[in-house]
Every structure is written in structure tokens, then in C-alpha cells.
Design a protein around this nucleic acid. Structure first.
Length: 570
RNA sequence: CGGGUUGUGGCUCAGUUUGGUAGAGCACCGUGUUCGGGACGCGGGGGUCGCAGGUUCAAAUCCUGUCAACCCGACCA
């Protein structure tokens, strides 16, 4: 392709709307433009990269046994009502009505669609396993779209659904997808980790998130350098921390005026933070009260609370709800509360001795609290409900965990029969018995993968693409395209490279050299070939590697061969 | 939805405090010089100052309302 025929409006200055580096670079390099909050147009450069990512995904999905289909974006309400998610999904689902007043939604995901599709048509275990996938737009009316393509309301996603006759089969499909995902992100040139993840509201068995490592990432992961354990911060399991045993002292009430935070209590009573118990009050969707207790220096993990209590969504509790069970915000403990709240205590708290906790009265705390003695075991749920912290012991090998940030670009789930059951999708097994399909679902955010690649590979001058997903692998720049001799020389190299199947751009714009060089660096083509009066004179070309800045000069005769060779390493 | 910030040519922003004929740089068009790291000169086009009301002789500027975007929290590929 020739640059005079390429719509790539680069910007000298960064539009004020962008905060995240990848977002800024995509705007500046002429990859995307915003249409509305969380809605973007992919310009030719972005779309070329996305098509390459999608092609890699297709190849790996097909190799794993997937078959591509295309389902409607617009989905009837009925199937969502049948699965029960029409009510559950909430305002995040884009809903609309047709002219007859019938209700539809723009698909945020397609479990209902695909399950309904095969339900009744796939009747025999002999037709299984089956893996169907599609790559298309998804709609989620995010509360707050931000970071460009990282969190948008309309986004391109690959979603594959697996159907198996039993759990063993499902686990095999899961493993195939896990491996395919590893291949995909490796081929995209990304540094990533597959981390154990929580299944969230979707339910089911196990799950991994594929997380591209980047400090700007929104998700936090814990990993072990000693063994291969890695998990999202929400999922990371934690063992009990046993405090040193002490002689039990009698429970005692003390005044702690205005000490409504752990920090204030700790300083006022002059005790180490590890000897304090922190309370956090939540309410579920049905407004039922959930009180969580963790050690003062620990953070509450809301996902673990959901799992421990069976709650659906948590929000911070109203003070009135806290008061209704005899609690007092800022001074809470399980001791002496009225019935009416679910009380969840972190397992580590149960191993504390002579600690400080609220007394459920204003400006008052208990000292010498020993949960095993003082908490009513009948009324509390003891569980692992704390958030992992750097330095916590690895649940597999016990060595210290490290934390890092990342961008979640894909997730694999087993669903079990959650959807086949709710949508009544069955088949006959070997013994002629009717069974529900064992399902899995597997998503990849295509735009987010592109954004993550930029987030991970850039410098002060712009983007640095891996050749497998670069909009073009090679750019040829005649420094002065007004000189026909340079342009002719460049065109010859251009067609030779094209004949070798190289995805090459000829920057034939009649711009000054500096402008073109800046654009090349900004857009981030892996290899730049420069043609100038000097190279013409020597019958050579100059090659610059974007990632390293290395410059090579090759004779004209061997330059194509050399470019092919260099390209292999990018 | 709560908290914060901002809306002025395509982009970045000044002007708003103290009302008085709408500005700069970049980009764009023409032209000449220049030509390997975002050139320079000359000439030019382009803005109902987010929108709607109000106050005033007069509103980008003051008041009321409203919309949108961005940032911080709960969601997720």
C-alpha cells in the first residue's frame, strides 16, 4: 500500500480526552477516533492490526476444533428471561424495543443465543464435543467507559462456547482453549500470564484470566516466583496466619474518643496494627446486612465475601442498617450484636489473641478480644475473606508472593450445565439417558489486546509493534518523494518485498523527511527502509529497527533478503 | 449514581476574576524559498464561545437550568 492512499491522520498534539498511554498513542497515531463515550471508529491502521489479531485467533480456534459462526447482535428478551439474566444483568445491558414494542437487547455476551441455537438440534452425544465461536461486537453499557479501547461500551470480542457430554469432556475442551489462548498471546508478542480467577456471577467450575503484564493495568495479580502459582488478587487463596499464643486476658471496654478508623485506634491505644480487628459493613441487593471482619492491616476481598455468603452484589451499608442490629459505624465487632446480619470473620482473625475491636458503642472499643473465646461461633461464618498482599505466602509452596499489575485480555471459564439447565438444552447419552450439556465459554477482547500490546510496547517516540500484529511490517521512506529517482528506486524495493509476501507500506507522500520519520516512529512499523540521495549513490539502502534503533546499511542487491531475515526476529 | 474538573475554529489552549466589536500556536488552502528528524516568508479560509433561558444599553465573561466529556470510587473482554 502507498501512504498517499492511506487514511492515517496523525496528530502532533494529544487530544485532552486521553489519559492512558495506549489511548493517547492510538489517537495520535491515527488509529482510532471517538464517536461517543466508549464508542470508537477503528481507522485503517487499527483495523489492519485488529484483523491480524483476529486472524491469529481464528487460526488457533480452528486448530483447537472451533467452528466460526456469526450470531445476531440484537437478541430477543425471551431467551434472557428464560435463563433468568434479563433481570440479573441490570443497567449494563443495552435494551431496546422494536416497532411492536417487543423487547430486545444488544448482546453483552451470547450464552443464551448459542445454547438456544443448538438446543433441540444437537440430540446425541455422538455430535459432541462441539465448539462454536464468533468474532463480533459486544455491548455493555459500562457505568464509566474510559481508557479508550480498554473499557468501551461497544467492543470487538471473540467468544467461543464448548458443549460436551460430560465434565471430563468439558475439562478437555477447557484445556484445549487454555493452550490455544497461550498460543494466541504468544503469537501477538505479548508478555502475559494465565492466572487463576474467580468465576464471578457466571458461576461454574474453574477459570483463568489471561493477563498482559503492564503497570497501567486495571487488574492486580499475585504470582509466585518459586512455583508456577499465579492468581488474580480477587482469587488468590490465603492461608491462616497464626498469631503467637498469649495468655488470655479478660475482655475490657475502653474509651476511644473519635477513633473511628483503625489508624486512629492503633495510635490512641498504642497497639500494633496486627492486634486490631477491622469491620466493614455491606449490604446485598436485597439490602440484607453483611458485616465482615479482618485484621487491621488487611483488606477485605469482596469477591470472597460473595462466595462465602452467597450474596449477589455488595454495596457499602447504610448507617441505619448497621444501627438496626445494634452496630455502630466505626466501632463495630461481632460481640453483642443483635441477630439480623450475616457476620463473616476472616480465618486469620480467629487466631488472634488479646486484640482490639469495636464495642458497638460510640467512642468505645474492646481490648483483650480473643475471637475464639469471645465470638459466638454459632452466629459467624469463618472464611478466607481477605485480599492478598505482596509478601503473603504462596498457597502452593509457601514462598512469598509478588504482586504485579496487568490488563485482562482474555478469560476461559467452565460453565458446567448452568445455561443448558436454565434453557433446558439436553441430549441423549450412550445409555439413552437425557442429559444437560456441559459447557464452557472463552472470550478474548480484540481491541483490548491491541491496546494492551501498545501499553506494553512503546517509547517516547510512539508505538513499537510486533511484526505479527503491526499494521504494516515494513515501511519504505524515500526522504524526498518529489525526486523521481528516489521514488522509482523505492518503488522497485516495494514491489520486490510485496512479491515475497511482506506487508509493506511505501511512504510516497511529498512531505519533508522529518515529518515522515516522526510518523513512522509514532505508528511503530517494526522495520523502516530509507531511500535517500546517499543510498542511491552507493546503490544501497538503510534499514532501521524500530524496537532497538539499530541502523544497517545493505547493498541494494541483498537488501530484500536482509529485510526478510531481520523481519523474522521482530 | 456519588465526588472533582472542563466545555472558546479540526487539535492544544489564552481570554471569564473586573461585561464593551473573539485571539495565539499547530493543522488547512494559495504562493515562493527550503528538503535526512514534526522548516520559513507572504497571502488566505474557517468559531451561533456546549445548549436553553434570564439580567443588562451591551454577555465567551454575571445568574438559573440543562447536556456532554474527562478524572477518582462500584463493573468487566
Amino acid at each position: 500500500m502507498k501512504a498517499t492512499n492511506l487514511y492515517a491522520p496523525t496528530l502532533r498534539e494529544t487530544p485532552a480526552e486521553a489519559e492512558l498511554l495506549s489511548h493517547k498513542l492510538m489517537l495520535r497515531a491515527g488509529f482510532i477516533r471517538k464517536a461517543a463515550g466508549g464508542m470508537y471508529t477503528y481507522l485503517p491502521l487499527a483495523w489492519r492490526t485488529m484483523k491480524k489479531i483476529m486472524q491469529i485467533i481464528r487460526e488457533e480456534m480452528d486448530a483447537a476444533g472451533g467452528q466460526e459462526i456469526m450470531m445476531p447482535i440484537t437478541q430477543p428478551a425471551e431467551i434472557w428471561q428464560e435463563s433468568g439474566r434479563w433481570a440479573v444483568y441490570g443497567p449494563e445491558m443495552m435494551r431496546l424495543k422494536d416497532r411492536h414494542g417487543r423487547e430486545f437487547c444488544l448482546g453483552p455476551t451470547h450464552e443464551e443465543m448459542v445454547t438456544t441455537l443448538i438446543s433441540g438440534e444437537v440430540r446425541s452425544y455422538k455430535q459432541l464435543p462441539l465448539m462454536l465461536y464468533q468474532i463480533q461486537n459486544k455491548y455493555r453499557d459500562e457505568i464509566r467507559p474510559r481508557f479508550g479501547l480498554m473499557r468501551s461500551r461497544e467492543f470487538v470480542m471473540k467468544d467461543l462456547y464448548s458443549f460436551d457430554k460430560d465434565v471430563d469432556g468439558m475439562n478437555i475442551s477447557y484445556k484445549k482453549m487454555y493452550d490455544a489462548y497461550s498460543n494466541i498471546f504468544s503469537r501477538c508478542g505479548l508478555k502475559f500470564r494465565a492466572v487463576e480467577a474467580d468465576n464471578g456471577a457466571i458461576g461454574g467450575g474453574h477459570s483463568h484470566e489471561f493477563t498482559v503484564l503492564a503497570p497501567s493495568g486495571e487488574s492486580s495479580i499475585a504470582f509466585c516466583e518459586n512455583c508456577d502459582y499465579a492468581a488474580s488478587d480477587e482469587k488468590a487463596e490465603l492461608k491462616i496466619i497464626f498469631s503467637e499464643k498469649e495468655e488470655l486476658k479478660p475482655l475490657e471496654k475502653v474509651l476511644t474518643p473519635n477513633c473511628h478508623t483503625i489508624e486512629l485506634v492503633k495510635n490512641f491505644l498504642n497497639v500494633p496494627i496486627e492486634k486490631t480487628i477491622k469491620a466493614v459493613a455491606f449490604q446485598d441487593d436485597d439490602e440484607s446486612l453483611i458485616l465482615a471482619f479482618v485484621r487491621g492491616d488487611h483488606e477485605v476481598n469482596e469477591i470472597k465475601i460473595l462466595n462465602a455468603t452467597g450474596a449477589l452484589h455488595l454495596h457499602m451499608a447504610e448507617e441505619s442498617a448497621i444501627n438496626s442490629v445494634g452496630g455502630c459505624a466505626g466501632f463495630m465487632s461481632p460481640i453483642g450484636l443483635k441477630d439480623g446480619a450475616k457476620i463473616v470473620v476472616d480465618q486469620t482473625v480467629m487466631e488472634m489473641y488479646n486484640a482490639v475491636a469495636g464495642a458497638n458503642e460510640v467512642d468505645t472499643h474492646f481490648i483483650n478480644v480473643t475471637p475464639k473465646r469471645d465470638f459466638d461461633a454459632e452466629k459467624i461464618i469463618v472464611a478466607d475473606i481477605r485480599m492478598v498482599q505482596e509478601g503473603d505466602p504462596c498457597p502452593h509452596c509457601g514462598k512469598k508472593l509478588k504482586m504485579t499489575r496487568g490488563i485482562e485480555v482474555g478469560q476461559v471459564f467452565t460453565l458446567g450445565n448452568k445455561y443448558s439447565k436454565s434453557l433446558n438444552a439436553t441430549f441423549l447419552d450412550e445409555s439413552g439417558k437425557e442429559k444437560f450439556f456441559e459447557m464452557g465459554c472463552y472470550g478474548i477482547g480484540v481491541g483490548r489486546t491491541m491496546a494492551a500490546a501498545i501499553e506494553q510496547n512503546n517509547d517516547d517516540d510512539g508505538i513499537i509493534w510486533n511484526k505479527n500484529i503491526a499494521p504494516f511490517e515494513v515501511v519504505i521512506v524515500p526522504v524526498n518523494a518529489k525526486e523521481n529517482s528516489q521514488l522509482d528506486y523505492a518503488e522497485k524495493i516495494y514491489s520486490e518485498l510485496k512479491n515475497f509476501g511482506v506487508d509493506v507500506l511505501l511512504d510516497d507522500r511529498k512531505e519533508r523527511a522529518g515529518v515522515k520519520f516522526k510518523d513512522c516512529d509514532l505508528i511503530g512499523y517494526p522495520i523502516r527502509v530509507t531511500v535517500s540521495p546517499k543510498t542511491l549513490e552507493n546503490n544501497s539502502v538503510e534499514i532501521k529497527i524500530r524496537r532497538t534503533g539499530e541502523i544497517f546499511n545493505f547493498d541494494r542487491e541483498i537488501c530484500v533478503e536482509k529485510i526478510l531475515e531481520l523481519l523474522k526476529n521482530e
